[in-house]
């Protein structure tokens, strides 16, 4: 397959030594194996995520995403804009749709952007990396690159919310999306069926409402364990962080003994394609994914 090039929006959590540093590292490795070139949007800014609304309101929030898209159009013309973070993707795509549906919002966003010397045109698609894998490659093509199948490992594919709703991947159901399971199986792993694959981890409220959110996290992990999973895999940096980081707190609160690794699809693909543990950024796990480390060492 010929080289593919995308305009890339990594987002705040993927910056060096930020909470999903391992997502970016493993994405870069995965893209190397898939011959994907990611051209970072120069000087991109935060999307406002799903918690910016209270202080930021509507237009300032839409303008944040409009700035990223305007920079992308200007510096990376002719490419699709691709995000790896669920919230980055959602905010960008949402802003794009709002502007497309309202001439007033377009005028207002561009009036604000003019202050930064920018103009939004709206000529690039806003996509998630999972869409690139599923739509631009497809499972058969992805399977072709596998050198070390993830044989015998049982994964709970945790799709979560914002990669799944309100947009999701074309043709997938909101209640039972299959693409992550299919991706796991393409890499030679086993995807266990379980009932919490689209349950909310609490999102930003893991910070402000820890008790309520940790109940959500407990439900997700409990179901993964009960259905035989040894590892959770997710496409979302906040899902990853919340479900991995708070396991100690959940154990204290609910008397559980959870200790399940939570990984990214990009780490699975990197390992299955023959990448090292360092390339898959497995040292970025708080709960080590030892089964993946063993395969990477082979």
């Amino acid at each position: 397959m010929a080289k593919k090039t995308y305009s890339f929006y990594p987002g705040c959590s993927s910056q060096t030594k930020a909470s999903s540093d391992n997502y970016l590292k493993s994405t870069n490795s995965m893209c190397k194996y898939l011959d994907i070139e990611l051209k970072e949007i120069p000087d991109w800014n935060c999307c406002g995520a799903s918690i910016g609304y209270a202080e930021g309101g509507e237009l300032p929030r839409i303008t944040l995403s409009a700035r990223n898209m305007a920079l992308s159009e200007q510096h990376n013309p002719g490419m699709d804009l691709v995000a790896t973070c669920a919230a980055c993707w959602l905010s960008t795509r949402e802003a794009k749709e709002r502007i497309a549906h309202s001439a007033q919002t377009l005028t207002e966003a561009n009036t604000a952007l003019a202050e930064a010397g920018l103009t939004y045109k709206g000529n690039q698609a806003a996509r998630h990396m999972a869409e690139v894998l599923v739509e631009d490659f497809g499972f058969d093509e992805l399977k072709r690159g596998v050198k070390k199948p993830l044989q015998g490992i049982k994964f709970a594919g945790y799709v979560g919310c914002q990669t799944n709703r309100p947009f999701g991947l074309a043709g997938e159901s909101f209640e039972n999306p299959k693409y992550l399971d299919n991706l796991v199986e393409a890499m030679g792993g086993e995807a266990v069926p379980y009932d919490q694959k689209v349950t909310c981890c609490g999102g930003a409220l893991a910070f402000s409402e820890p008790e309520k959110s940790q109940k959500q996290i407990k439900d997700i992990i409990e179901s993964a364990y009960d259905h035989g999973a040894e590892m959770i895999v997710t496409p979302c940096p906040l899902c990853q962080a919340n479900v991995e980081i708070y396991q100690g707190e959940v154990n204290k609160r609910f008397g559980t003994k959870f200790n399940i690794p939570v990984t990214y699809y990009s780490q699975l693909i990197t390992v299955a394609y023959g990448g090292t543990a360092a390339e898959a950024a497995l040292d970025g796990q708080l709960i080590r994914a030892t089964r993946l480390e063993e395969i990477a060492k082979k």
Binding site: A18, N45, A112, E115, L118
Partner: peptide, 27 residues
């Protein structure tokens, strides 16, 4: 390596802060 104590003293940010601030103010 997913949290940097040095972030306390500055950390990540964009280059065009003045344009960014003016943009948000206008919005």
């Amino acid at each position: 390596k997913r949290l940097n104590p040095m972030e306390l003293f500055g950390g990540h940010g964009i280059k065009d802060k003045s344009g960014f601030h003016a943009m948000l103010k206008k919005a």
